[in-house]
Design a protein around this nucleic acid. Structure first.
Length: 282
DNA sequence: ATTTTCCCCTGCCGGC
DNA sequence: TGCCGGCAGGGGAAAA
């Protein structure tokens, strides 16, 4: 599942290659990926535009164009953005949903097995923040993710801390993988009520979030199911996971068997010894 | 206002 | 072998 480190890896690769290129052709094979916008309309609005920059908001990639519009891409579960150099022998992707051809002959493919991924154009005439407000919270690898900011978004919350971490409106970019890993590193049980964590534990968790995301970024992300970066490469984070997907295996920290439970409708992995239940629970 | 549930999708896997 | 139910999960909408 592409989370912040995976999306950021793709962003860095694309930001080295896309700016300055002009979109000369857009082909949308699966109308669902542009939903609710008619595919022909989206294609027409993108064609002829020059790409200025490639940025990221949480798990969203935002490709800024010369008319002030943004092409927003969300990979959701199984989406991939693949870049091919000019004159490359572009492989016929099995789950190809859309193709963007650029003026130098390079190509950007959007493939998505599960069809949850979306392409969306934000119109320059609209309030650019309207789309993000209430949807994406603080960026965990930015200077805004301070102890006070993290404490503020958890304060009073009665949901399990795991659910709070998955809530993109609070801290944005954390998904199931990194939530499990951060909670393990911080020694916090995933069902602990978010608002009941002590200041010490909140700070320990904040550091753990930053830590696991940085490791994910340094290893190029976790290629667990279908994730590949913009060049088709795989990440290395999947072999660094301490608890996620490790049900039945010994916790690297203490040897206790990792267990899998269900928290907030999500498969959740934790070490019952490193992450003891404490304080009030939900 | 916050929290929970449901739903979208398709490949895969275990069970019979 | 082959069918089938269940599962996986990000996020948005709807319900509680």
């Amino acid at each position: 599942m592409p989370e912040l480190p995976e999306v950021e890896t793709v962003r860095r690769q694309l930001s080295q290659r896309l700016p300055g290129r002009r979109i000369v052709g857009v082909t949308i094979d699966d109308p669902l990926c542009a939903d609710p916008c008619p595919p022909a309309q989206l294609a027409a609005q993108l064609e002829g535009r020059e790409i200025r920059s490639v940025r990221r908001r949480g798990k969203y990639l935002t490709i800024w164009l010369d008319d002030g519009a943004q092409l927003v891409v969300h990979l959701r579960m199984t989406g991939r953005l693949l870049w091919w150099p000019p004159d490359a022998d572009v492989a016929p992707e099995r789950f190809l949903r859309a193709t963007i051809d650029l003026d130098d002959g390079s190509t950007l493919q959007f493939a998505d097995q599960r069809r949850f991924g979306r392409l969306l154009r934000l119109d320059p005439s609209a309030d650019p923040e309207a789309h993000w407000r209430g949807r994406v919270g603080v960026e965990p690898l930015s200077g805004h993710f301070t102890p006070a900011a993290f404490a503020a978004v958890l304060r009073g919350r009665r949901t399990p801390i795991k659910a709070a971490l998955l809530n993109q409106a609070l801290v944005t970019g954390i998904g199931n993988i990194y939530a499990d890993e951060a909670l393990h590193q911080a020694g916090i049980h995933p069902e602990t009520m978010a608002g009941s964590l002590s200041a010490t534990r909140v700070e320990r968790l904040r550091q753990a979030i930053i830590d696991v995301l940085r490791i994910g970024l340094a290893t190029g992300g976790a290629s667990i199911h279908t994730y590949a970066d913009a060049l088709g490469g795989r990440g290395g984070m999947q072999s660094q996971l301490q608890v996620h997907l490790n049900e039945g295996r010994p916790c690297p920290a203490c040897g206790t068997t990792v267990v899998k439970t269900r928290v907030a409708q999500r498969g959740t992995y934790h070490c019952p010894r490193c992450q003891r239940r404490s304080g009030r629970r939900t």
